[in-house]
């Protein structure tokens, strides 16, 4: 995947998520930082130092691979110690110090007692933690994680996610991680960089990208939005046969309206309310949602239902748009 015009400044100590659909260039970007790919143009700076032409081994990055890439013939302890043992004699810590460091890291990743195991004898979550400990052992200037939870089941993912945040807060490493799971990115990261087709669409806090999407792509990608084709004119937008007032006055002509389940609220019947027909009602996790049709020629939208509200298929609900996310059609 080629990437172009990516200008991303990472703050020291920050936990930054690179979020995007598969093939959007986020992993390529991570590998460029690590030096596993060479850029044809552009620069990579670590602080003031230009690392663009620096060899991988001299960059001092900690890289956690998607499938961990643990050394299969070495034990857990040997895996973690690898980065210290391959140092030239001048800078290599003494054996005793290496052993101490490995023991400390095993404590940090909560794997004490498993030091003699081989990778094949570990569960996915344990391998993931060994990979992290191995990357941390070399005291990297930046920690890079490629889909760190991609190969794990849902429960382990959630536990490890929280645990990774704790480790980050304790060790303070500048960390970049790649994910295609927006829930993961929004929960874990200080800031999120949204990738699309080899470019960064927006960089911001989870609140920024959720509440103030900079582009139509971001608005559509995060927060399970449905995209509705509309016509905008001044302070009015036309959604199918319906006219709705909008605070967004900068958009005119054919536009796209992004509607998330929380953007719609049920109102008393009134001038601005849109009559919406209930197609079906279903559960999504702990919440209950109704699928609504605003008009026969528009995609259906979802609305989150309050507990205790009974809604049946075929009902017509008056709804209003609480939040308007409007972008000019491209």
């Amino acid at each position: 995947m080629a990437i172009e015009h990516v200008d991303l400044a990472v703050q020291p100590g920050e936990l930054l998520a690179l979020l995007g659909p598969s093939g959007s260039g986020k992993t390529t970007f991570l590998r460029l930082i690590a030096g596993l790919e060479a850029p044809t143009a552009g620069r990579i700076l670590f602080g003031e130092e230009d690392a663009t032409r620096l060899a991988v081994r001299d960059r001092r990055v900690g890289f956690v691979f998607q499938h961990y890439a643990l050394f299969r013939h070495l034990t857990v302890a040997e895996n973690i110690a690898y980065g210290l043992r391959v140092r030239p004699r001048r800078t290599r810590p003494r054996d005793k110090e290496i052993r101490q460091r490995v023991a400390d890291l095993l404590d940090l990743v909560q794997l004490r007692g498993l030091d003699k195991r081989h990778p094949a004898q570990l569960s996915g979550g344990q391998r993931q933690r060994v990979a992290l400990a191995r990357a941390l052992a070399v005291e990297p200037r930046v920690l890079l994680l490629d889909e760190p939870f991609g190969a794990l089941d849902a429960k382990v993912r959630r536990d490890l996610r929280r645990w990774l945040r704790e480790v980050h807060d304790r060790t303070g490493h500048t960390t970049l991680f790649v994910t295609h799971d927006q829930e993961e990115a929004l929960e874990l990261a200080d800031r999120v960089a949204i990738f699309n087709r080899g470019a960064v669409e927006q960089v911001g806090t989870p609140d920024d990208v959720l509440d103030r999407p900079a582009t139509a792509f971001v608005a559509g990608f995060v927060g399970e939005a449905v995209r509705l084709p509309v016509d905008a004119a001044g302070s009015w937008i036309r959604i199918g046969p319906h006219q709705v007032r909008t605070p967004e006055e900068n958009v005119a002509g054919p536009a796209e309206l992004f509607v998330r389940p929380r953007d719609l609220v049920i109102a008393r019947p009134g001038a601005d309310a849109i009559p919406a027909r209930v197609i079906c009602v279903r559960r999504s996790g702990t919440s209950r949602r109704a699928e609504l049709s605003l008009s026969d020629d528009l995609p259906t939208v979802e609305i989150e239902l309050a507990d205790g509200r009974t809604v049946r298929r075929g009902d017509v609900l008056p709804v209003v748009l609480a939040t308007v996310r409007l972008f000019t059609s491209r």
Binding site: R57, D58, A69, F71, G83, V86, R87, A135
Partner: peptide, 21 residues
């Protein structure tokens, strides 16, 4: 090549990577 790449990021030289991984 993932294990080799891991060894390189951990600071091993190409030859060392070959011998140890």
């Amino acid at each position: 090549t993932a294990e080799e790449e891991a060894a390189l990021t951990l600071g091993a030289s190409g030859w060392r990577t070959f011998l140890t991984v």
